[in-house]
Design a protein around this nucleic acid. Structure first.
Lengths: 183, 183
DNA sequence: CTTGCCATGTAACGCGTTACATGATTCT
DNA sequence: AGAATCATGTAACGCGTTACATGGCAAG
């Protein structure tokens, strides 16, 4: 359900075409809920059918290849407000690295895993740097309004997560190297 | 793909029936790659068809309701060894709490979010406690072999993750309360 | 006029989730 | 005999991913 409401929220911040939305889900919004253009168009269709969003601008621009701007309806805003307070459980964690490490432990095939860990470490390091740049640019110690504070809070979630992964990857590399040397 | 190899790994550690596997994916193995019995039976069928696992024990026990023990074939072990060294990217993070907070920021509807954060905080706290118990029980400072060290490493991944979430949830609650009071 | 980009879509598949179905065995 | 538990499955749906299709428009 979250994609649905992520799209409504993004459209509430500013109405957009499918492609503009796709770009938002490739950067800012995508940092905590990524989505491809295929997912977005599929969901826009469903949101239109449900009457939670509507087409804005010239309706005499039908068909393929033409940009279609959509915005949130009153009912869309109402459904978003209702959803905000709903309770759910954290999504279960899944780590392919952890599976690889258990597999390596079971087979004794330790060699290949190090590269996999290094790849993840590099990816997390790059993401962390991206987040830090955003923090410097948008949240560097000046006074923020409530909305700014909340956006900063969301960014800090990403920062904390990447830092945790980086720390663990370094830990993992250290152990793997130690085990490799003492074979 | 990871579920496939998680199952092979688990069966390599010890052969099992579908239900026994299901229980493993509800505890130990499930802490880093959860799976339901429906997923497991579906995947077992596919692994049997691919010849990566095979039925052990009395083959004159067909049909429904009867336990069927399976084990890994040589080809299964070979495919696992191949997979271990493959490179992939970290799975993209998705946080429904982050979506809710952005939605709250966009609508001004701050009230409901606090409960959602508290629920996640409680869940992460409970999971962390589970992991700590396992650490005390299985990894309390005695000498471990390579396999034990690797299992401990995987557990520490879960520990780090839960701790990161807990820290962020507390941070979030503090901010939400501050914003609520200064309205 | 063709190449490239903007823009909107379709189709098929993989994997996770929810709900339900079927049969064997054991306990009361 | 009925209930509980062990055990194996089916069916349908939701959402993410991959691959491909269609069309408009601008630059060279």
């Amino acid at each position: 359900m979250s994609l649905r409401f992520a799209i409504i929220t993004s459209l509430l911040e500013r109405e957009a075409t499918g492609l503009e939305l796709t770009r938002r889900f490739d950067r800012s919004f995508g940092y905590f809920w990524p989505a491809s253009h295929q997912q977005i168009y599929r969901e826009l269709r469903s949101l239109l059918d449900a009457g939670l969003i509507e087409e804005k601008g010239d309706p005499a621009r039908p068909g393929r290849g033409q940009p279609r701007v959509v915005g949130v309806t009153e009912e869309g805003v109402a459904s978003l407000r209702r959803w905000i307070g709903e309770l759910d459980e954290p999504r279960p964690e899944r780590s392919s690295l952890a599976v690889r490490i258990r597999a390596a432990a079971a087979t004794g095939e330790l060699g290949g895993v190090e590269d996999a860990v290094r790849r993840h470490l590099a990816a997390h390091t790059a993401t962390l740097e991206t987040y830090r740049e955003i923090e410097r640019r948008d949240f560097a110690d000046r006074l923020l309004d409530a909305e700014g504070e909340l956006h900063h809070l969301v960014l800090r979630s990403g920062l904390a997560n990447e830092q945790a992964w980086i720390g663990w990857c370094e830990d993992a590399l250290e152990l793997l190297q130690r085990l490799r040397r003492s074979e």
